[in-house]
Simulated scan of single mutants.
Amino acid sequence: MLKISRVIIVSLCCILICILGTIYSLIRFRNPSNVGVIARWFGRLYPLFGLDVEHRFPAEADKIGRCIYIGNHQNNYDMVTISYMVMPRTVSVGKKSLIWIPFFGILYWVTGNIFLDRENRTKAHGTMTELANRINSDNLSIWMFPEGTRSRGRGLLPFKTGAFYAAVSAGVPIVPVVCSTTHNQIDLNRWKNGKVICEMLPPVDTSSYSKENVRELAEYCRRIMSERINQLDDEIARQPQI
């Protein structure tokens, strides 16, 4: 009964956010700060899942400037955990098929996000070049999930290089954002589902990398993110269960 109630309440909240967010974003059509506003609306839904989510930002997070944020992509619960970490003037890159999701698809478009055609490698490469140009010309930051898909309990998957190619081309840093493990943690029939920690890590300077060695940059970022996720999981495991 609890699970059914939660599904109904969360579904209604998501539909309401999509409708209100679409209206809000039509008024400020494709303003790059729309994404962060709507993402935080979704991010405030975590109590409905019985979660206690802590968001950790560095002291000068608002002074980082143009960059590419990369996050670990676990499951659909990312919508109420790591989504809250999206900063102002940051748009995301998502697969083209998102446009067909009822309510959410139109919201994703009008907020100013960028669609990626993963089936066409030439177009996908062109999108990365477009990102690099837009970061500087439009004073944007970009949010990407370099794993390319949800990990669903398989750990941090290998990174695709698109985000890192764009960062090197644009001459901006990479900012890793990590979320502790949520796989198999959430039971919608359980009142409390424990703690989740989302944390923004220090920027990674990309000035010493080139297009020829972006794979090294990707592997370095993956390593520091994986280590920090493990540390966050250990921190949560050591805390007393309430």
Rank of each mutant, 00 (worst) to 15 (best):
residue 67 C to F: 06
residue 84 Y to K: 09
residue 146 P to F: 06
residue 165 Y to M: 13
residue 126 G to C: 07
residue 66 R to H: 00
residue 179 C to G: 00
residue 174 I to W: 00
residue 89 R to H: 13
residue 188 L to Y: 07
residue 183 H to S: 14
residue 81 T to W: 01
residue 124 A to Y: 07
residue 129 T to S: 09
residue 111 T to M: 14
residue 163 A to F: 02
residue 66 R to F: 00
residue 74 Q to L: 03
residue 129 T to M: 11
residue 59 A to L: 08
residue 148 G to N: 10
residue 69 Y to V: 09
residue 65 G to A: 03
residue 156 L to V: 13
residue 133 N to R: 11
residue 164 F to V: 05
residue 59 A to V: 10
residue 87 M to P: 00
residue 104 F to V: 06
residue 121 R to P: 13
residue 67 C to S: 14
residue 179 C to N: 02
residue 188 L to F: 12
residue 76 N to A: 15
residue 151 S to E: 11
residue 178 V to P: 06
residue 108 Y to W: 11
residue 125 H to G: 14
residue 54 E to H: 10
residue 88 P to M: 04
residue 122 T to V: 15
residue 58 P to C: 04
residue 149 T to A: 04
residue 138 D to H: 14
residue 166 A to V: 03
residue 137 S to T: 14
residue 69 Y to N: 07
residue 107 L to F: 11
residue 57 F to E: 03
residue 91 V to Y: 02
residue 79 M to F: 13
residue 137 S to N: 09
residue 130 E to R: 14
residue 110 V to T: 12
residue 151 S to N: 12
residue 69 Y to I: 10
residue 135 I to R: 09
residue 113 N to M: 07
residue 186 I to A: 08
residue 152 R to G: 01
residue 67 C to L: 07
residue 66 R to Y: 00
residue 145 F to V: 08
residue 55 H to L: 04
residue 106 I to H: 04
residue 62 D to C: 04
residue 92 S to L: 08
residue 184 N to R: 15
residue 110 V to L: 09
residue 76 N to K: 06
residue 115 F to R: 14
residue 157 L to I: 07
residue 57 F to L: 05
residue 68 I to H: 06
residue 150 R to P: 13
residue 115 F to L: 15
residue 70 I to R: 10
residue 185 Q to P: 02
residue 126 G to I: 08
residue 139 N to A: 10
